[in-house]
Design a protein around this nucleic acid. Structure first.
Length: 292
DNA sequence: CACTTGACCTGTCCGC
DNA sequence: TGCGGACAGGTCAAGT
């Protein structure tokens, strides 16, 4: 479920509470969720201090004082929810409008007991994972990180980089290329569909058949759509919540995603759902014509 | 090599 | 109400 805007929203939430806290204990009941041996955990995880919360693509990275970093991938249904210890609320006197009432629950896979609270990693489908790797050379050594394409929201990211990466995928569909994390990092199914609609490109269009003008429009659309979603706290279908357990509201503003059967906001023809690159894909067949 | 498909899991929804 | 099958926002291994 979580794509770049959701993971960034989680990161922002964790950043508020976790840095400088010490990890007291870590427990897991599903080995694949916590891919860290007991010995390594004892040596480099327990007793270490969390220094900061970073994000790369859809991956959360927490550098520790031990010289190791905790890596967390939420995949489809992962949640990272922080609960402060008794007497240490979220502050401001506001009640926490959390949608998750009591934790742990039946999808809790990993529990991090911290010096001032508890961090829960919940994951209904068990696709997500927590790993621990040395911080030195992490971005060059980690198999996932070293293949990851550029961050689309970095100011330094240019259209030329974007176009260059797509050029190498000229025979595949534009949607498959957008979802390819080695082309650019962080786009998933929701933002692929929304970006392609905004750029008026049919998802099945071969990359090589997308005009320069439309490719430039797509570059802007990806950044616009994901920036807006971060402002709105991401997209919540049924699983996604942020670090406090709150849902995001982006889907209220979605133009085509899960809108099949309703009218296109641009031309009022019916939005349809098809299958592209093995994924449910939403588009307006009138606004997004297949270029050949 | 580029590209596509199935597997990893649980839960929900839809049609019979 | 019960049951089978399709499907769900991600990524990797294995296939063509």
């Amino acid at each position: 479920m979580p794509e770049l805007p959701e993971v960034e929203t989680v990161r922002i939430g964790l950043q508020e509470f976790l840095p400088s806290q010490t990890i007291v204990s870590v427990k897991s009941d599903w080995p694949k969720s916590l891919a860290v041996s007991q010995a390594v955990a004892r040596e480099h995880l327990i007793g270490a201090k969390i220094e900061s919360i970073k994000r790369r693509g859809k991956l959360i990275i927490m550098p520790l004082s031990s010289g190791y970093s905790v890596l967390i991938h939420l995949k489809m249904t992962g949640q990272l929810v922080y609960r402060p210890s008794h007497g240490r609320g979220f502050g401001g006197g506001h009640p926490t409008s959390s949608l998750i009432n009591s934790l742990p629950d039946k999808s809790t896979r990993v529990v991090f007991e911290l010096s001032q609270g508890v961090l829960f990693f919940n994951d209904q489908r068990k696709f997500g994972w927590v790993k621990l790797e040395p911080s030195a050379g992490l971005y060059a050594n980690n198999a996932f990180l070293k293949k990851l394409g550029p961050e689309p929201l970095e100011h330094s990211y240019t259209f030329e980089q974007f176009a260059m990466a797509f050029k190498k995928r000229s025979k595949t569909s534009i949607k498959a290329a957008l979802l390819d994390q080695t082309v650019l990092a962080g786009v998933g199914n929701i933002y692929a569909d929304e970006s392609l609609f905004m750029a008026r490109i049919h998802p099945l269009t071969k990359v090589g058949n997308v005009s320069a003008v439309k490719l430039r429009r797509l570059f802007s659309a990806v950044r616009e759509v994901m920036s807006l979603s971060i402002k709105l706290g991401g997209s919540s279908d049924r699983n996604y919540v942020d670090a406090k357990g709150n849902k995001g509201s982006y889907l209220k503003f979605a133009q085509v995603f899960r809108k099949e059967g309703s009218n296109c906001p641009n031309c009022s023809q019916q939005i349809i759902k098809i299958r592209v690159a093995g994924r449910g894909t939403h588009l307006c067949p009138h606004c997004q014509k297949l270029a050949t």
